[in-house]
């Protein structure tokens, strides 16, 4: 908080030197930049907030936490989502479910592709964020961002195909038309892994919404930074508000309210590394028979081709019968 306050004060002092400062976009960030006498422009920092129902609120609790680089350097204050934020997010996800699950697969595919386009346009920003959060080399950070973009493209293409490969015309022994087809499960709470920060988020989020579910995505700790930037991408990709809601903060705090919430239909525990905690969340989820995707026991390699497992994890099969006759 003190960091933010300082920045504001300095900014207020700046106007006298403003014209020259504005001209310089390559200025380094640091103590010199804050000096009113310097011709170098002070950068405008981003406030990292939550993404709920298409809006960017702060946590209702008023809390934030410091996100730091692996070497301890301060990066930003992120909103520390509360139980109440989690409940608000579930409400928005539920409200968006009918529209999103009812949208045509073609439309969902186009919106997911649009997300890839928007992400591509902000490659440099994501790479810088991933780099600072994960402490990666420039090349590795760029590779992660590229993989995340390509993952959106992969799932964009699946929206109008998963229904076909999971459907069946069933040859029942009688005069009936009988067809099975998949439908989205509903509201899914996703616990993203902290690493890879961006690719992990995208790898759990994209399949859930490609299948027609709406999501509450918990971005743990430092993954908050790319998560909120991803929210900005989502907000400008024609994705209806509430389809994806992003909570930044502590899975340890948000796990229970989401696992126990009776309006959440499924859990993806990918990011819950503590086996005991994952088990207790799965037990809570049993209260309303949530579908649970357990964390993999071996460390997951998120760069591998994802297949369809995460896509089918949150699909139900509906079978419809009708008599055949004149």
């Amino acid at each position: 908080m003190s960091e933010k306050t300082t920045a504001k004060k300095t900014a207020k002092k700046a106007p006298a030197a403003a014209p020259e400062a504005a001209a310089s976009v390559t200025a380094p960030v640091g103590p010199e930049a804050a000096s009113p006498a310097s011709p170098v422009r002070l950068d405008v920092r981003k406030t990292y907030k939550l993404y709920i129902g298409g809006a960017f609120p702060r946590s209702e609790s008023g809390r934030s936490y410091q996100v730091t680089a692996p070497d301890g350097t301060f990066l930003a204050n992120a909103a520390l989502a509360s139980r109440k934020d989690a409940r608000d997010a579930v409400g928005k996800a539920r409200g968006a479910f009918s529209g999103w699950s009812g949208a045509t697969a073609y439309l969902r595919g186009q919106i997911l592709y649009r997300i890839a386009e928007m992400l591509e346009g902000r490659r440099a920003q994501f790479a810088a964020e991933v780099r600072s959060v994960e402490g990666l080399s420039e090349a590795k950070a760029a590779a992660e961002v590229d993989a995340a973009i390509d993952r959106w493209v992969w799932y964009a293409g699946w929206t109008d195909k998963i229904g076909q490969i999971r459907s069946a015309a069933n040859p029942v022994a009688g005069p009936f038309w009988n067809v099975s087809s998949p439908e989205p499960t509903g509201v899914v709470a996703l616990f993203a892994p902290e690493r890879p920060a961006l690719l992990g988020l995208v790898s759990v989020l994209a399949p859930a919404i490609a299948a027609g579910n709406t999501a509450v995505l918990v971005a743990p700790d430092s993954a908050a930074l790319p998560a909120v930037t991803l929210a900005e991408v989502l907000a400008t990709s024609d994705l209806p508000g509430g389809v994806v809601n992003i909570l930044t903060g502590s899975p340890a705090e948000l796990g229970k309210p989401l696992a126990e919430h009776m309006d959440v239909d499924a859990l993806d525990l990918a990011g819950i590394a503590d086996a005991g905690f994952a088990t207790s969340l799965e037990q809570m989820a049993a209260e309303n028979l949530k579908r649970v995707l357990r964390p993999s026991s071996a460390p997951a390699d998120w760069t591998q081709a994802p297949g369809t497992a995460r896509l089918t994890a949150f699909l139900e099969t509906k079978t419809v019968w009708h008599p055949v006759g004149a």
């Binding site: 029942v172 099969t317 079978t319 419809v320 019968w321 009708h322 008599p323």
Partner: peptide
């Protein structure tokens, strides 16, 4: 999970059966 239209309680080994929620 199963919707019977103009019929009810029909079952067949080729027809998937199971619930939502």
């Amino acid at each position: 999970g199963v919707v019977w239209a103009n019929t009810f309680n029909k079952f067949d080994p080729t027809s998937p059966f199971g619930g939502y929620k």
